[in-house]
């Protein structure tokens, strides 16, 4: 292959600074979106199992809506369409006054999308708990709220650490879609370096390594969490 390799380009300014900057945005967007996803996902996931019909329906609508529209389309809807359908002042605020409009939109879009997936994990966690536990809870005089608070939710979360790890990893990789609405995260920066230096192989190798390092770190962290959290002998607790 006729190609002039130049790994040094990755460590020259301004490109090195771009990469560091890109990693910063990848991590920021992912973590912030994860906080939203985990919070909303927990609420919706629990709502999908409660014995109140309209709450269950509302939660189902949320999950199906956000889970079935491609993330890329959702980002465009949040970014380009939402400000136009809101009252003019609100729309202008979203486009101009809102701090870091692209980043904020990416975090919200990614967070709401991932929340629907987290919700499904939470629901499956709760449903994996044998019915006997709920019945025993009610038999000891717990209310529904107390049942969830003391039995179902704590056990469910300990069961779903492995699948949640996957969702957590996915959010880092999905954060690269934020480049389509102008967030200069790792992938966007790699593209930019390619366009400026024509050293595409180096730039994307760097991006690959960065994503692997980030996700392996997350995996290691979640493994520790899983070790601490898993319930010995519980059927879905082992792997």
């Amino acid at each position: 292959m006729e190609y002039n390799w130049d790994w040094g380009v990755l460590f020259r300014e301004p490109y090195f600074g771009w990469i560091i900057d890109g990693i910063g945005w990848t991590v920021t967007v992912s973590i912030a979106a994860w906080i939203i996803a985990f919070t909303i996902g927990s609420v919706v996931g629990v709502a999908r199992t409660v014995p109140v019909r309209w709450v269950r329906s509302a939660a189902t609508v949320y999950v199906e809506l956000f889970r079935n529209i491609p993330l890329l389309v959702q980002l465009f809807l949040w970014y380009f369409v939402l400000p136009e359908v809101l009252p003019r002042e609100w729309g202008l605020w979203m486009k101009r006054e809102m701090p870091l409009p692209e980043v904020t939109t990416a975090i919200i879009g990614l967070g709401f999308y991932t929340a629907s997936r987290v919700a499904e994990q939470v629901r499956s966690g709760i449903e994996a708990i044998p019915r006997g536990q709920s019945m025993a809870g009610y038999a000891t005089g717990l209310t529904t709220v107390q049942l969830y608070r003391h039995i179902l939710v704590p056990v469910a979360y300990r069961l779903i650490v492995p699948p949640l790890t996957s969702e957590f990893l996915t959010i880092f990789k999905n954060s690269s879609l934020a480049l389509t609405i102008g967030v200069l995260e790792t992938t966007a920066r790699s593209r930019q370096i390619t366009e400026f230096t024509f050293q595409g192989f180096e730039a994307f190798t760097a991006a690959t390594v960065i994503y692997i390092v980030i996700t392996l770190t997350v995996t290691a962290f979640m493994t520790v969490v899983d070790e601490r959290a898993k319930i010995p002998g519980f059927i879905t607790g082992g792997r």
């Binding site: 380009f80 400000p83 136009e84 729309g91 202008l92 486009k95 101009r96 409009p101």
Partner: peptide, 8 residues
């Protein structure tokens, strides 16, 4: 152009 059109 869309960004300009929508005052972004």
């Amino acid at each position: 152009f869309l960004s300009l059109e929508t005052d972004r």
